[in-house]
């Protein structure tokens, strides 16, 4: 059996810019690594970010498991008076938001700079 603990490292980094906390993701986010993403968000919530930006420029694939993690983060931000923004989604990744009719509930920006401006 394959080693389920192996990770393709979807968490590429966390940065701060002003009031914003920027989580940079990459790779293919599916059932295998959605728990890792939820755990990372839980870690970030402890720092009470006023603005949480998820930079998804390097994300190549996202399924409903990953989408559920993002919805969870959005809900936390709404409950805690924080802003939650997504930036840099490629067409392939954006399509799941459209299929699930969720693109209107997220603040989605073409780039990180736009999300921060």
């Amino acid at each position: 059996m394959a080693d389920s603990s192996s990770s393709q490292n979807i968490i590429r980094g966390v940065r701060h810019q002003g009031k914003a906390m920027i989580l940079e993701l990459g790779g293919e986010i599916d059932m295998k690594c959605s728990a890792e993403l939820k755990a990372k968000f839980a870690e970030l919530y402890k720092q009470n970010p006023q603005v949480l930006v998820v930079n998804m420029v390097k994300v190549e694939f996202l399924d409903s498991s990953g989408l559920a993690s993002l919805v969870g983060a959005l809900k936390w931000c709404r409950q805690n008076d924080s802003e939650f923004k997504l930036a840099g989604l490629c067409k392939r990744v954006k399509s799941i938001f459209e299929i699930c009719k969720l693109e209107s509930i997220f603040q989605i920006y073409d780039s990180e700079d736009e999300a921060l401006s």
């Binding site: 394959a2 389920s4 599916d30």
Partner: peptide, 12 residues
């Protein structure tokens, strides 16, 4: 495949 999420990338 085995029912293991590690192999989802192979199928993709």
């Amino acid at each position: 495949i085995h029912a293991n999420p590690d192999y989802l990338c192979v199928v993709r």
